[in-house]
Amino acid sequence: MTTAAPVSRSSGVGATGLLLLLLVVAAVASLGLGRIDLPFARVVAVLASPWLAPDPPVTALEWSVVVTIRLPRVALAVLAGGGLALSGAALQGVFRNPLVGPQVVGVSSGAAFGGTLAILVGWDRTGLVAAAFLFGLAALVLVYGLGTLVARSNILVLVLAGVIVSGFFGALVSLVQYVADSQDKLPVIVFWLLGSFATASADKVGLVAGPVVVGGVALLLLRWRINILSMGDEDAAALGVPVERLRWIVLVLTAAIVSAQVAVSGIVGWVGLVVPHLARMMVGADHRRLLPASMLAGGLFLLAVDDVARTVTAAEIPLGILTALIGTPVFAFLLQRTRMGGHG
Protein backbone atom coordinates (compact mmCIF):
# COMPACT_ATOMS: atom_id res chain seq x y z
CA MET A 1 0.00 0.00 0.00
CA THR A 2 2.61 2.50 1.02
CA THR A 3 4.97 4.10 -1.39
CA ALA A 4 6.15 7.18 0.48
CA ALA A 5 8.99 6.45 2.85
CA PRO A 6 8.85 8.34 6.13
CA VAL A 7 11.04 11.42 6.16
CA SER A 8 13.51 11.59 9.01
CA ARG A 9 13.03 14.19 11.71
CA SER A 10 16.16 16.21 10.96
CA SER A 11 15.63 16.43 7.19
CA GLY A 12 12.00 17.48 7.87
CA VAL A 13 13.15 20.35 10.06
CA GLY A 14 15.76 21.31 7.45
CA ALA A 15 13.12 21.41 4.71
CA THR A 16 10.88 23.68 6.81
CA GLY A 17 13.78 26.06 7.44
CA LEU A 18 14.60 26.09 3.75
CA LEU A 19 10.98 26.90 2.88
CA LEU A 20 10.98 29.81 5.33
CA LEU A 21 14.19 31.18 3.84
CA LEU A 22 12.86 30.75 0.30
CA LEU A 23 9.62 32.50 1.22
CA VAL A 24 11.43 35.52 2.67
CA VAL A 25 13.76 35.77 -0.34
CA ALA A 26 10.88 35.33 -2.79
CA ALA A 27 8.80 37.96 -1.00
CA VAL A 28 11.61 40.53 -1.18
CA ALA A 29 12.35 39.65 -4.81
CA SER A 30 8.63 39.94 -5.66
CA LEU A 31 8.61 43.48 -4.26
CA GLY A 32 11.15 44.39 -6.95
CA LEU A 33 9.23 42.71 -9.79
CA GLY A 34 7.06 44.71 -12.16
CA ARG A 35 7.09 47.53 -14.66
CA ILE A 36 9.51 49.42 -12.46
CA ASP A 37 12.21 46.82 -11.87
CA LEU A 38 14.21 47.07 -8.66
CA PRO A 39 17.18 44.84 -7.84
CA PHE A 40 17.00 42.69 -4.70
CA ALA A 41 19.47 44.82 -2.71
CA ARG A 42 17.60 48.01 -3.57
CA VAL A 43 14.31 46.52 -2.30
CA VAL A 44 16.03 45.63 0.97
CA ALA A 45 17.38 49.20 1.16
CA VAL A 46 13.91 50.65 0.54
CA LEU A 47 12.36 48.43 3.22
CA ALA A 48 15.09 49.33 5.71
CA SER A 49 15.07 53.05 4.88
CA PRO A 50 12.99 54.16 7.89
CA TRP A 51 15.84 52.91 10.10
CA LEU A 52 18.91 52.91 7.85
CA ALA A 53 19.17 55.79 5.37
CA PRO A 54 20.53 54.28 2.15
CA ASP A 55 22.76 55.95 -0.38
CA PRO A 56 21.44 57.07 -2.83
CA PRO A 57 18.36 58.06 -0.82
CA VAL A 58 15.07 56.27 -1.49
CA THR A 59 12.89 58.21 -3.91
CA ALA A 60 9.21 58.82 -3.30
CA LEU A 61 8.49 56.69 -6.36
CA GLU A 62 10.51 53.75 -5.07
CA TRP A 63 8.82 53.96 -1.69
CA SER A 64 5.38 54.12 -3.18
CA VAL A 65 6.01 51.26 -5.63
CA VAL A 66 7.51 48.92 -3.06
CA VAL A 67 5.60 49.75 0.11
CA THR A 68 2.29 51.26 -0.99
CA ILE A 69 1.59 49.27 -4.13
CA ARG A 70 3.46 45.97 -4.04
CA LEU A 71 3.76 45.18 -0.32
CA PRO A 72 -0.02 44.75 0.19
CA ARG A 73 -0.18 42.52 -2.86
CA VAL A 74 2.75 40.35 -1.75
CA ALA A 75 1.35 40.15 1.78
CA LEU A 76 -2.07 39.19 0.44
CA ALA A 77 -0.62 36.44 -1.77
CA VAL A 78 1.44 35.00 1.09
CA LEU A 79 -1.45 35.16 3.58
CA ALA A 80 -3.95 33.66 1.14
CA GLY A 81 -1.63 30.91 -0.10
CA GLY A 82 -0.39 30.07 3.39
CA GLY A 83 -3.91 30.05 4.80
CA LEU A 84 -5.31 27.88 2.01
CA ALA A 85 -2.54 25.29 2.17
CA LEU A 86 -2.63 25.19 5.97
CA SER A 87 -6.41 24.72 5.89
CA GLY A 88 -6.06 22.03 3.23
CA ALA A 89 -3.49 20.11 5.27
CA ALA A 90 -5.67 20.34 8.39
CA LEU A 91 -8.78 19.23 6.48
CA GLN A 92 -6.93 16.30 4.91
CA GLY A 93 -5.89 15.26 8.41
CA VAL A 94 -9.29 15.46 10.10
CA PHE A 95 -11.11 13.94 7.12
CA ARG A 96 -8.40 11.26 6.93
CA ASN A 97 -8.38 11.77 3.20
CA PRO A 98 -5.58 13.31 1.15
CA LEU A 99 -8.09 14.07 -1.64
CA VAL A 100 -9.89 16.69 0.43
CA GLY A 101 -9.42 20.42 0.14
CA PRO A 102 -11.29 23.61 1.07
CA GLN A 103 -13.24 23.35 -2.19
CA VAL A 104 -14.24 19.75 -1.61
CA VAL A 105 -15.92 20.35 1.74
CA GLY A 106 -18.05 23.19 0.42
CA VAL A 107 -16.45 26.14 2.19
CA SER A 108 -15.17 27.79 -0.98
CA SER A 109 -18.48 27.63 -2.84
CA GLY A 110 -20.44 28.78 0.20
CA ALA A 111 -18.11 31.74 0.63
CA ALA A 112 -18.30 32.42 -3.12
CA PHE A 113 -22.07 32.64 -2.91
CA GLY A 114 -21.86 34.99 0.08
CA GLY A 115 -19.45 37.20 -1.85
CA THR A 116 -21.45 37.31 -5.09
CA LEU A 117 -24.59 38.06 -3.11
CA ALA A 118 -22.80 40.93 -1.36
CA ILE A 119 -21.64 42.34 -4.70
CA LEU A 120 -25.15 42.01 -6.15
CA VAL A 121 -26.70 43.83 -3.20
CA GLY A 122 -23.89 46.38 -3.26
CA TRP A 123 -22.44 45.87 0.21
CA ASP A 124 -19.04 47.32 1.08
CA ARG A 125 -15.90 45.24 1.61
CA THR A 126 -16.59 44.43 5.26
CA GLY A 127 -20.07 43.26 4.30
CA LEU A 128 -18.55 41.08 1.61
CA VAL A 129 -16.16 39.46 4.09
CA ALA A 130 -18.96 38.91 6.58
CA ALA A 131 -21.25 37.40 3.93
CA ALA A 132 -18.47 35.15 2.64
CA PHE A 133 -17.70 33.89 6.14
CA LEU A 134 -21.36 33.45 7.01
CA PHE A 135 -22.12 31.35 3.94
CA GLY A 136 -18.78 29.57 4.05
CA LEU A 137 -19.57 28.46 7.58
CA ALA A 138 -23.19 27.73 6.61
CA ALA A 139 -21.95 25.45 3.84
CA LEU A 140 -19.71 23.66 6.32
CA VAL A 141 -22.57 23.28 8.82
CA LEU A 142 -24.77 21.90 6.05
CA VAL A 143 -22.08 19.46 4.98
CA TYR A 144 -21.58 18.34 8.52
CA GLY A 145 -25.30 18.14 9.26
CA LEU A 146 -26.00 16.21 6.09
CA GLY A 147 -23.11 13.86 6.78
CA THR A 148 -24.28 13.22 10.34
CA LEU A 149 -27.87 12.74 9.19
CA VAL A 150 -26.93 10.07 6.65
CA ALA A 151 -24.23 8.22 8.54
CA ARG A 152 -22.75 9.39 11.76
CA SER A 153 -19.02 10.04 11.53
CA ASN A 154 -18.59 8.44 8.13
CA ILE A 155 -15.84 10.29 6.31
CA LEU A 156 -16.83 9.29 2.79
CA VAL A 157 -20.38 10.50 3.42
CA LEU A 158 -18.97 13.82 4.65
CA VAL A 159 -17.04 14.25 1.42
CA LEU A 160 -20.12 13.35 -0.65
CA ALA A 161 -22.13 15.84 1.38
CA GLY A 162 -19.47 18.40 0.44
CA VAL A 163 -20.06 17.63 -3.22
CA ILE A 164 -23.82 18.08 -2.76
CA VAL A 165 -23.51 21.36 -0.86
CA SER A 166 -20.89 22.69 -3.31
CA GLY A 167 -23.28 21.90 -6.15
CA PHE A 168 -26.09 23.71 -4.37
CA PHE A 169 -24.10 26.87 -3.69
CA GLY A 170 -22.60 26.68 -7.19
CA ALA A 171 -26.13 26.85 -8.58
CA LEU A 172 -26.91 29.83 -6.34
CA VAL A 173 -23.76 31.61 -7.60
CA SER A 174 -24.94 31.00 -11.17
CA LEU A 175 -28.38 32.32 -10.24
CA VAL A 176 -26.87 35.52 -8.84
CA GLN A 177 -24.80 35.91 -12.02
CA TYR A 178 -27.94 35.35 -14.12
CA VAL A 179 -29.93 38.06 -12.38
CA ALA A 180 -26.99 40.47 -12.03
CA ASP A 181 -26.90 43.59 -14.23
CA SER A 182 -24.74 42.54 -17.18
CA GLN A 183 -23.26 46.02 -17.66
CA ASP A 184 -22.49 46.88 -14.11
CA LYS A 185 -22.47 44.01 -11.57
CA LEU A 186 -21.80 40.91 -13.67
CA PRO A 187 -18.21 41.78 -14.72
CA VAL A 188 -17.34 42.57 -11.10
CA ILE A 189 -18.72 39.21 -9.96
CA VAL A 190 -17.02 37.26 -12.74
CA PHE A 191 -13.61 38.84 -12.17
CA TRP A 192 -13.93 38.51 -8.42
CA LEU A 193 -14.75 34.80 -8.77
CA LEU A 194 -11.78 34.23 -11.09
CA GLY A 195 -9.51 35.34 -8.30
CA SER A 196 -6.98 38.14 -8.28
CA PHE A 197 -4.74 40.16 -6.02
CA ALA A 198 -4.79 43.10 -8.46
CA THR A 199 -6.90 45.21 -6.16
CA ALA A 200 -4.73 44.52 -3.14
CA SER A 201 -4.62 47.28 -0.55
CA ALA A 202 -3.59 47.70 3.05
CA ASP A 203 -7.31 47.53 3.95
CA LYS A 204 -7.69 44.14 2.30
CA VAL A 205 -4.56 42.85 3.98
CA GLY A 206 -6.03 43.99 7.28
CA LEU A 207 -9.29 42.16 6.54
CA VAL A 208 -7.67 38.86 5.64
CA ALA A 209 -4.85 38.98 8.19
CA GLY A 210 -7.13 38.70 11.24
CA PRO A 211 -8.83 35.41 10.39
CA VAL A 212 -5.75 33.91 8.73
CA VAL A 213 -3.36 34.74 11.57
CA VAL A 214 -5.74 33.85 14.42
CA GLY A 215 -7.07 30.73 12.67
CA GLY A 216 -3.61 29.77 11.50
CA VAL A 217 -2.02 30.06 14.93
CA ALA A 218 -4.86 28.03 16.46
CA LEU A 219 -4.50 25.31 13.81
CA LEU A 220 -0.74 25.22 14.35
CA LEU A 221 -1.27 24.81 18.09
CA LEU A 222 -3.63 21.89 17.41
CA ARG A 223 -1.38 20.22 14.88
CA TRP A 224 -0.37 17.24 17.01
CA ARG A 225 -4.04 16.57 17.84
CA ILE A 226 -4.70 16.45 14.10
CA ASN A 227 -2.28 13.50 13.96
CA ILE A 228 -4.50 11.71 16.44
CA LEU A 229 -7.74 12.65 14.65
CA SER A 230 -6.25 11.21 11.48
CA MET A 231 -6.11 7.77 13.11
CA GLY A 232 -9.87 7.42 12.91
CA ASP A 233 -12.69 8.41 15.26
CA GLU A 234 -12.75 5.33 17.40
CA ASP A 235 -9.00 5.06 17.72
CA ALA A 236 -8.71 8.75 18.59
CA ALA A 237 -11.51 8.43 21.15
CA ALA A 238 -9.77 5.41 22.69
CA LEU A 239 -6.62 7.52 23.01
CA GLY A 240 -8.63 9.99 25.07
CA VAL A 241 -9.34 12.71 22.49
CA PRO A 242 -12.81 14.36 22.29
CA VAL A 243 -13.19 13.65 18.56
CA GLU A 244 -16.40 15.50 17.64
CA ARG A 245 -15.55 18.69 19.50
CA LEU A 246 -12.00 18.84 18.21
CA ARG A 247 -13.07 18.22 14.62
CA TRP A 248 -15.62 21.02 14.90
CA ILE A 249 -12.98 23.43 16.15
CA VAL A 250 -10.71 22.58 13.22
CA LEU A 251 -13.58 22.94 10.73
CA VAL A 252 -14.62 26.37 12.03
CA LEU A 253 -11.02 27.60 11.97
CA THR A 254 -10.53 26.46 8.37
CA ALA A 255 -13.88 27.99 7.37
CA ALA A 256 -12.76 31.35 8.80
CA ILE A 257 -9.43 31.25 6.97
CA VAL A 258 -10.84 30.14 3.63
CA SER A 259 -13.79 32.55 3.71
CA ALA A 260 -11.48 35.47 4.46
CA GLN A 261 -9.29 34.49 1.54
CA VAL A 262 -12.27 34.09 -0.82
CA ALA A 263 -13.66 37.45 0.30
CA VAL A 264 -10.54 39.41 -0.64
CA SER A 265 -9.29 37.46 -3.65
CA GLY A 266 -12.06 35.22 -5.02
CA ILE A 267 -11.86 31.48 -5.61
CA VAL A 268 -8.25 30.35 -5.77
CA GLY A 269 -8.56 26.63 -6.29
CA TRP A 270 -6.15 23.71 -5.98
CA VAL A 271 -3.70 25.38 -3.61
CA GLY A 272 -5.30 23.78 -0.55
CA LEU A 273 -5.39 20.39 -2.23
CA VAL A 274 -2.03 20.18 -4.00
CA VAL A 275 0.39 22.06 -1.75
CA PRO A 276 -0.11 19.78 1.31
CA HIS A 277 0.80 16.82 -0.92
CA LEU A 278 4.04 18.49 -1.98
CA ALA A 279 4.77 19.45 1.63
CA ARG A 280 4.14 15.86 2.72
CA MET A 281 6.78 14.69 0.26
CA MET A 282 9.24 17.13 1.80
CA VAL A 283 8.66 16.76 5.56
CA GLY A 284 6.63 13.56 5.96
CA ALA A 285 3.14 12.84 7.25
CA ASP A 286 3.50 14.07 10.85
CA HIS A 287 1.20 17.11 11.07
CA ARG A 288 3.56 18.72 13.58
CA ARG A 289 5.87 19.35 10.63
CA LEU A 290 3.33 19.13 7.81
CA LEU A 291 1.21 22.10 8.89
CA PRO A 292 4.03 24.66 9.16
CA ALA A 293 5.61 23.34 5.95
CA SER A 294 2.28 23.47 4.07
CA MET A 295 1.69 27.03 5.24
CA LEU A 296 5.13 28.20 4.07
CA ALA A 297 4.95 26.28 0.79
CA GLY A 298 1.43 27.60 0.12
CA GLY A 299 2.55 31.18 0.65
CA LEU A 300 5.54 30.62 -1.59
CA PHE A 301 3.46 28.92 -4.29
CA LEU A 302 0.77 31.58 -4.50
CA LEU A 303 3.35 34.36 -4.38
CA ALA A 304 5.17 32.81 -7.35
CA VAL A 305 1.91 32.26 -9.25
CA ASP A 306 0.88 35.86 -8.62
CA ASP A 307 4.28 37.09 -9.81
CA VAL A 308 3.66 35.22 -13.06
CA ALA A 309 0.09 36.49 -13.25
CA ARG A 310 1.12 40.12 -13.02
CA THR A 311 4.37 40.15 -15.01
CA VAL A 312 4.08 37.71 -17.93
CA THR A 313 1.43 39.53 -19.92
CA ALA A 314 0.30 43.16 -19.93
CA ALA A 315 -3.28 42.14 -19.20
CA GLU A 316 -3.24 40.25 -15.93
CA ILE A 317 -4.14 36.55 -16.02
CA PRO A 318 -6.72 35.76 -13.30
CA LEU A 319 -5.17 33.83 -10.46
CA GLY A 320 -7.81 31.09 -10.23
CA ILE A 321 -7.14 30.16 -13.85
CA LEU A 322 -3.38 29.86 -13.26
CA THR A 323 -3.65 27.85 -10.04
CA ALA A 324 -6.03 25.43 -11.76
CA LEU A 325 -3.82 25.14 -14.84
CA ILE A 326 -0.81 24.39 -12.64
CA GLY A 327 -2.64 22.47 -9.92
CA THR A 328 -4.49 19.93 -12.05
CA PRO A 329 -1.49 18.38 -13.85
CA VAL A 330 0.57 18.46 -10.64
CA PHE A 331 -2.21 16.69 -8.81
CA ALA A 332 -2.56 14.11 -11.59
CA PHE A 333 1.18 13.50 -11.36
CA LEU A 334 0.98 13.12 -7.58
CA LEU A 335 -1.90 10.68 -7.90
CA GLN A 336 0.07 8.58 -10.33
CA ARG A 337 3.15 8.72 -8.12
CA THR A 338 1.25 7.52 -5.10
CA ARG A 339 -0.45 4.82 -7.20
CA MET A 340 -3.91 5.79 -6.06
CA GLY A 341 -3.02 4.52 -2.61
CA GLY A 342 -3.96 7.83 -1.07
CA HIS A 343 -0.53 8.42 0.42
CA GLY A 344 1.13 11.72 -0.12
Partner: peptide, 9 residues
Protein backbone atom coordinates in the same frame (compact mmCIF):
# COMPACT_ATOMS: atom_id res chain seq x y z
CA UNK B 1 -5.64 -2.62 13.13
CA UNK B 2 -6.74 0.84 12.05
CA UNK B 3 -7.37 2.87 8.95
CA UNK B 4 -3.93 3.95 7.79
CA UNK B 5 -4.15 7.02 5.63
CA UNK B 6 -0.82 8.70 6.23
CA UNK B 7 2.65 7.11 6.39
CA UNK B 8 3.53 7.81 10.02
CA UNK B 9 6.68 6.44 11.58
Amino acid sequence: DFARTFPYT
